[in-house]
Design a protein around this nucleic acid. Structure first.
Lengths: 153, 153
DNA sequence: TTAAAATAGATAGTATGCTATCTATTGTGA
DNA sequence: TCACAATAGATAGCATACTATCTATTTTAA
């Protein structure tokens, strides 16, 4: 296995993808610290806005790609910040329905601007073709990892 | 921003890279749970083996890509498992020198087999050319993210 | 119809990363 | 020389993810 800092190859590719993830997250967290949000909290807001009001916690968790119990705490945080409402579901008393408050809606607008701008800016180092290639690679990786997870269980 | 589960594009690429990282880590953690290690603990062992005995904690942390305080706890875990030794540095009494125990060396051999096999297996969905392209994309991304981090500070 | 299985969410405990700060030691410049 | 800055590691506390488990419901099947 190669440990060079600058050269990425087959032997350290996954390691570097992991590093990249943490470092990019930190960049966005710095960007957002003035509105008191982190990637963990703004991402559910974005997904909630996209899926629409009245969705269940478990569906939001699935959309964001985390487990239910991880979402519980994040929702509590977002409610405490006045960005999200949690209501009873009259058709299923086990469930809770989530919706954005007015404050939540304006925060989503702000998040969209910031995230889209920063991620666009980062990915502008690539041509459109390259982005498409990279996205294709990631789709294939994701599906292979999903297979590996299924086999492991 | 697109939220489709299967289609990755410029707007959700970074999100999917993050998801991929967590999911792959989980696959390896399942693989390693019978020897009581996780990615966080086996990776320092690999890097220690590569860098050689007698290195300092801070250098190991830098190699693995984590901060010093994060390494402290991991080293304690590895010492408790009898895989690593921590000795005084006679030339600098602030520093500690790390080395692999015999048990640590044989664990490294086992880790190498497992990780290399699994990662090779995963990346075999790509041709050699594709791996090279992907690695090149990641190098460029990493360097762009490093620039963004420097600017943010 | 009703007992068992499944589901939604909450709670508890664990792991892993971070920053801020502390102590002890070493290096440096007036 | 000697006060101050820098460095190595440790400690404390926070954030975020996980699994396992609990309660309260709803669904299913005998």
């Amino acid at each position: 296995m190669s440990y060079s800092k600058n050269i990425i190859d087959k032997n350290n590719l996954l390691f570097h993808i992991g590093l990249l993830t943490r470092h990019w997250r930190k960049v966005l967290d710095v960007e957002f610290q003035n509105c008191g949000l982190t990637e963990a909290t703004w991402r559910p807001l974005l997904h909630l806005s996209h899926l629409g009001d009245g969705i269940r916690q478990k569906d939001l968790a699935a959309s964001v790609g985390i487990e239910g119990p991880s979402m519980v705490r994040l929702v509590e945080t977002l409610i405490a910040k006045g960005l999200v409402d949690r209501a009873e579901d009259s058709t299923d008393r086990r469930a809770k329905l989530l919706s954005l408050t007015d404050k939540g809606h304006s925060m989503v607008a702000r998040i969209r601007e910031t995230v889209l701008f920063r991620e666009e800016q980062l990915l502008n180092i690539f041509t459109e073709d390259e982005v498409e290639q990279l996205a294709g690679f990631m789709e294939r990786l994701e599906s292979a990892v999903a297979d590996a997870r299924r086999k492991g269980k």
